[in-house]
Amino acid sequence: MTRRVLRGFNAQAFSQARQHKGLSVSDLSRMAGVSDAAIWKWEAGTATPLIDLLARVMRILDAPIEQVITIPADERYPGDWRAIRGISQPELAATAKIPTTTLKGIERGDRNLSDANADKLADLLGISVEEYRAAYQRARERPAGTSV
């Protein structure tokens, strides 16, 4: 499970999604099996959720993850597409039948992206191979110090 900050997480949009559903933090916490302290921190913008927890919460809110991860499609890295689909690195790697370290390297742009992996990963994420390759190229060309 990744422990990095979830890139593009919009705390205000998350809070609005919860309020739109008419759920208190306490009720959402109980229904999702996530601590109410975690949800308060997400809404305050002092912490970001792990993707598996966010996916669970967004299912309860009956809202797409893309509503709260607000990165334009033409600015997304491969890991952003995965997060928007609510899939952790280990889950995607296992489904794609590649090592998690390979997926991590691809998402960071540190490892070459083979045609076979591009086809598999794009298909699993429900995007075109061209979109996945463009996201990969953005990751490779990102400025030094920029997180993916």
Rank of each mutant, 00 (worst) to 15 (best):
V5G: 05
V68W: 07
A73C: 11
L23E: 01
A135R: 10
R3W: 06
P78V: 09
H20L: 13
W40K: 12
I84G: 01
T102V: 15
A13T: 06
L28F: 02
R140F: 08
P99F: 03
E141W: 09
L54V: 06
R30I: 14
I65G: 12
R7F: 11
A37K: 12
V57C: 06
R140M: 13
R59H: 13
L61P: 05
Y77P: 01
D36S: 14
L54E: 04
K120S: 09
R4Q: 11
A134N: 13
T2A: 15
D27W: 07
T100R: 12
D74E: 13
S26T: 14
S26L: 15
Y136M: 01
L103D: 03
R82H: 07
A139H: 06
K21F: 07
R56Y: 00
I65F: 07
L23Q: 00
V25G: 06
R30Q: 10
I84W: 02
Q89P: 05
Y77C: 00
V25E: 06
L61E: 04
G8W: 04
E141Q: 12
L6D: 01
P99Y: 02
G79P: 00
T100D: 03
A94H: 10
D123F: 07
H20R: 12
R82Q: 12
L113H: 05
D80N: 03
S114N: 03
T102G: 11
